[in-house]
Amino acid sequence: MTKRQPIYPAGRHALYDEHGYSPAIPAGAFLFVSGQVGSREDGTPHPDFEQQVRLAFENLKAVLAAAGATLDDIVDVTTFHTDPKTQFDTVLAVKQDYFPEKPYPTWTAIGVTWLSGFDFEIKVIARLPQAA
């Protein structure tokens, strides 16, 4: 079995080591990206929910870029929300800025009770451009 080769973005934050996970792992033609949150440089959540969502997307873009991929390479999205009923309109508005036109990736939204101090998390599966 080949050893996992993690992908780390520039400006890697402490959460990866603190919680013991890799930001992304390529496997064949795909990149499996761990849940990205709206963490500031020190690893703490941004206090403003919209900014937390935007930072999560920016952190996601940084991980994808480190693997040579972009948002256009995403095929599957899963998002986690601590209060979907009150947060979903904000998430949809931010999502529109990052995925402005069809075709959209598949998307599953899940309500959760805990995200280690965060209120939003996004994880994706993307195809690796160099594998295409």
Results as ranks from 00 to 15, higher is better:
69 A>C: 05
47 P>I: 04
74 I>Q: 02
76 D>H: 12
21 Y>T: 05
83 D>H: 14
30 F>H: 14
56 A>P: 14
36 Q>G: 07
48 D>G: 09
19 H>T: 14
44 T>I: 08
43 G>K: 08
75 V>P: 10
41 E>A: 15
41 E>R: 09
64 L>M: 07
66 A>K: 06
48 D>P: 03
42 D>P: 10
47 P>E: 11
58 E>M: 13
54 R>E: 12
79 T>G: 05
69 A>D: 02
23 P>T: 10
28 G>L: 01
27 A>D: 07
51 Q>F: 02
33 V>N: 06
59 N>T: 10
72 D>W: 03
14 A>Q: 06
30 F>M: 08
81 H>T: 06
23 P>W: 02
14 A>H: 00
24 A>V: 11
35 G>V: 11
52 Q>T: 10
19 H>V: 14
57 F>L: 11
22 S>P: 15
50 E>D: 11
43 G>R: 03
49 F>T: 05
43 G>A: 03
53 V>P: 08
48 D>N: 12
19 H>M: 15
29 A>K: 15
61 K>P: 01
19 H>C: 15
59 N>V: 05
21 Y>S: 08
20 G>Q: 13
68 G>S: 01
32 F>D: 04
26 P>W: 07
61 K>V: 00
20 G>H: 12
87 Q>G: 03
69 A>H: 00
28 G>R: 11
45 P>W: 01
28 G>I: 12
83 D>A: 14
64 L>E: 04
91 V>H: 04
70 T>Q: 08
81 H>S: 04
90 T>L: 05
27 A>S: 05
18 E>W: 07
81 H>W: 04
88 F>A: 10
89 D>L: 00
66 A>V: 05
65 A>G: 10
74 I>D: 05
22 S>T: 10
38 G>P: 14
51 Q>R: 13
54 R>L: 02
35 G>C: 10
16 Y>D: 09
76 D>F: 09
53 V>C: 06
88 F>N: 09
54 R>A: 05
58 E>V: 06
77 V>C: 06
76 D>K: 08
72 D>Q: 09
57 F>P: 12
53 V>E: 11
77 V>E: 13
40 R>D: 11
70 T>P: 04
72 D>S: 06
22 S>K: 12
15 L>F: 12
36 Q>R: 08
84 P>L: 14
49 F>L: 15
88 F>R: 10
44 T>Q: 15
65 A>T: 12
66 A>L: 08
35 G>N: 08
26 P>M: 09
19 H>E: 15
56 A>F: 13
17 D>G: 13
30 F>T: 09
40 R>M: 15
86 T>F: 00
37 V>E: 06
37 V>H: 01
23 P>Q: 03
24 A>P: 07
40 R>C: 12
58 E>L: 14
53 V>T: 10
80 F>G: 02
40 R>F: 01
